[in-house]
Design a protein around this nucleic acid. Structure first.
Lengths: 216, 216
DNA sequence: GTCTATATCCTGATAGAC
DNA sequence: GTCTATCAGGATATAGAC
């Protein structure tokens, strides 16, 4: 087995297992066992478990965010200026949900990416700031262009809710299938995307003042 | 220290640490150390780490869901029939966000509850089904009463997105503060609740058909 | 580059004295 | 009920032969 093969095998197995079990619950033994390589290979190729995890994540996160920006660019260019809100939202959500296409059963990449946001392993801080800072900025401005009447803080909140809807859907599709008694599933990614974009875009467009009067 | 004191100390410390580090990353030694009790006390009082985790979760989850149903009942009664969509949504989200009120700094209960949805430790299956099944059903019908034109599967999807927005907000408030450069924070829970209810209710009301035309 | 063998440490759980 | 001491196993990481 060549060097790059071994590295690849480790990355694939780690991605799968991290997605299924989480970072801390997944041992290097499990990873190297599934990959069919020696235990010591992880430390040789990656240095540590944390570095392996970073490599697994950025292998998908970097292209994902590039694709998001590519789609945003494309629809802004297409619209000769301001893209529609649905297009902007779909540029953000679509590429993430696309990852779930070939991933239905295995739940590897998909759950992994959903997990990142909530598990937030300590080593991930730097990677996060680097990788998301300008993505957030680009989408912030694109959304503000669509909804100029909104305060910036409101736009931030709504982007936060958008990410939440996405992460939760990527991460816990089994919960949905359970509670919906089979009404909903991740079988048809196009439909999920449609549902999510519709919901999020409508939420983004909500007028700023709304009654919340509860009944305590 | 009395028996019930020890049990309580363990529950408090476990709640805190589970919320900060997650289930698997938190050792019994860390818990008993923080609680100031003996290591063996966990197994004496709870039987195992899993049973302790279940106790920690249900201690907050059961009252939380009771409060949700109480508020739903109250606003349905108040409206003499169908409550407004905002009221229904606030009945679900409000009690969860209220937990974050006294919890700003420590991030104990709050992150714990946010985490449950995504970490999904194996032992939690039964507790989940028992605890959420009829809650979901009650809110499903309440929302359907507000939005009779929607298919049931669409309502399920939108409830799923609602839960995602909530869980992500409870779990990753530090991310929001980071990316929004301080524009948003969890300091003012009433404002967060307002923002979330507005967003979710508007998303729920979205017409079923909506253009998603991307630009690939 | 890949392997075996091992060092070092930490985990959950328990037995048994008090 | 609470403690000490310990078991048995699994964790990451590394040293050194090939």
């Amino acid at each position: 087995m060549s060097s790059s093969d071994t590295k690849q095998q480790i990355l694939d197995a780690a991605e799968q297992l991290f997605g299924e079990e989480g970072f801390t619950s997944t041992s290097l033994r499990a990873i190297t066992g599934a990959a069919g390589v020696n235990l010591a290979a992880v430390n040789y190729h990656f240095g540590s478990k944390s570095e392996l995890a970073k490599a697994v994540i950025s292998r998908h996160l970097v292209p994902l965010n590039q694709e998001r920006l590519r789609r945003l660019d494309a629809c802004e260019k297409n619209a000769k200026g301001t893209a529609s809100l649905e297009e902007v939202v779909a540029s953000f959500l679509g590429p993430a949900l696309d990852l779930a296409r070939e991933d239905k059963q295995t739940a590897g990449v998909t759950r992994l990416l959903g997990r990142i946001y909530s598990e937030q392993p300590p080593f991930i801080g730097e990677l996060f700031a680097d990788e998301f800072q300008d993505l957030v900025e680009r989408f912030l401005h694109a959304i503000e262009a669509c909804l100029p009447e909104l305060d910036r803080s409101v736009v931030f909140w709504r982007m936060h809710f958008m990410v939440g809807s996405m992460a939760h859907t990527l991460c816990t599709n089994n919960l949905l299938t359970l509670f919906s008694s089979g009404h909903c599933s991740m079988q048809d990614i196009d439909e999920v995307t449609q549902q999510m974009v519709t919901f999020v875009a409508a939420g983004m467009r909500a007028p700023v003042i709304s009654k919340v009067e509860g009944s305590r």
